[in-house]
Structures are given as C-alpha cells and as structure tokens.
Simulated scan of single mutants.
Amino acid sequence: MNTYPEAASDDAIRGAISFAGALGCKVHVTTFAVQFPPVPSPIGGYLINVEGLSRAAEARSRAECERLQALVETAGGSGVEVSVTRQDVVVGQVPTIAAAEGRYFDLSLVLWSAESFATQEMAQAMIFGSGLPVILVPPNATAGTVDHIAIAWDESRVAARALRDALQILPTGGRISVLTVQDEKTLRRTGLAQTLVSSLDLRGYEAKAVDLTLDGRSIAASLQDTALAEGAQLLAMGGFGHSRIRDFILGGATKGVLTDLRMPVLLAH
C-alpha cells in the first residue's frame, strides 16, 4: 500500500481484506513510507523551503503507515490472519520495490481507485513486473466466498496463464464461466469457449461456455458485465502490455479494466 501522494481509501482496504478472507488467504500487508533525497538548491531555498517540505511529507507518510497498520489489523479481526510490515523507500521507487516484494508470495491484491494515479501506477508495476497473478480489488468488493470464476478466453498465452492462476484459487466444486468475445478481433477458430469447457470437464470442473458480443461497449465493460450477470465473483484475464522506461502501452482489455474496474479482476502477464 502506497502512502504518497495519497493512500487508498479506507473502504478499499477493508474490501481487499474481506476479499482475501473469501479466498481463504492469509494476508501480508506492506506499507511504504517515502523518503526524499536531499535536493541541492541554494537559490531555490530562498524562495521555498524544499528541505522542510520534504521532511514534512516524509513525516506524513510515516504517520499514514501507522494509521494503515491499525486499520488493517482491525479489518483482519473478522477472522482473516493479517501481518503488516513497513518499508522506507525513496520516492518514485515504490512500484518497483512493491513488484519485487510481491514475488515472495502466491498472489498480490492491489487496492484500486480510478482517481488515484499512485494506485494505477502500483497496479501496472505489479501486473507487468512481479511475475505473480494480481487481483485488482475495487472499493465496493464484497464476496462471502469465491466459488465461481469467469475466464476471458481467446486461446492466447496470457489467457492460459490467467486460467492456470485462477484455477489455483478455485475451491473444489467451484464453477467456471468461459467468456469469448466474438466481434472484438479475429479468432483462430470458432467454438473456443466450448473447446475449453470440454477440456475443463475432463479435468473434473463444472464449466459453461458463454459467447458474447460488444454491442457498442468496450471489451472490458462487456467482459465484466457478462461475468457479473453469470454470477461470477472473480474475472480472470490475461494482461497485455509492455513497458518503455516507466510508460506502459496497454492492450484494450487491460486498459479498460484499469480505468473502469467493476468487480475483482485477476490479471496475469
């Protein structure tokens, strides 16, 4: 969880802890307190107290870490086992350090806010840099259990990765809705959803094929709307994108989810 320039909302934090409980997970939370390197600016120092502003921002970030720790521990009191640590990180390096931190665990939950650039930057770093399945959790996430997942299936490598990751958290007897968009791009063959359903049936899963069309909606909205209509508590999909220094070129579905998150979404890259 980032604390600078702003932290995720308290509702988002509670929602993520609750969703982790629905997955049956133990939760490790890392908060990041930012540090500002000294800025040599003798002339600017007469105009603005850069050093003083930096130290004040560091103090606010540390205080926010302490507040978030208390909030997380309280949220975990409902039966979710929670541990919290703090890392002090140079400002601007939080997403990179978070991606490395995530590699020590099975999956990462990323708090989401469409209004927070820091949250979006964290999500992109985790999706494309951690090597882990990442679940974006909206503030309104509620789930008593996660026993029905939807998979966005187009036969691609990243879709297969997302399916594998999602199956790891699906409990025995859980259901799978296989979603294939028919009019978004040229597919290699027809019947992709049903082909995957047949494969899942052979492996003992209860699966259903769902073909859908965009009908004027974005692909991200279409997939999420259909997943929710089918009763899924989680949508799994491949994350398309690559980085140029710190800028991300995103595929349409990935970009759509990152700007219009309607349900918990597992993204694998």
Rank of each mutant, 00 (worst) to 15 (best):
F105G: 00
E184M: 04
V90W: 10
L200G: 00
P38M: 08
K185I: 06
V80W: 09
L196M: 08
M1P: 08
A220Q: 07
C65W: 13
G144D: 14
M1C: 09
G174V: 02
Q194T: 08
L267I: 11
T226F: 08
G241A: 07
S54V: 00
Q35F: 14
T259N: 12
D260N: 14
S61K: 00
V89M: 07
G241F: 09
D211W: 01
T30H: 12
L228I: 03
G191Q: 05
E6M: 07
A98H: 02
Y205Q: 02
S222L: 04
I17T: 06
V72C: 15
I245L: 15
S18D: 14
A98T: 00
A57W: 10
D165W: 07
P138G: 10
L202V: 02
N140I: 11
T172P: 13
Q35W: 10
L163E: 05
E101D: 14
R67C: 06
S41M: 12
A229Q: 14
Q69K: 14
H269G: 09
M237P: 07
F105P: 00
P138R: 06
L196F: 10
R157D: 14
V72R: 05
A141Q: 03
D215C: 07
A99E: 01
N140D: 15
R262C: 03
P138A: 12
P37N: 02
G173C: 11
I13P: 02
M126K: 01
A209P: 12
M237Y: 09
S18M: 04
L234C: 09
L234Y: 05
G239I: 00
G144Y: 00
F36S: 02
G174S: 05
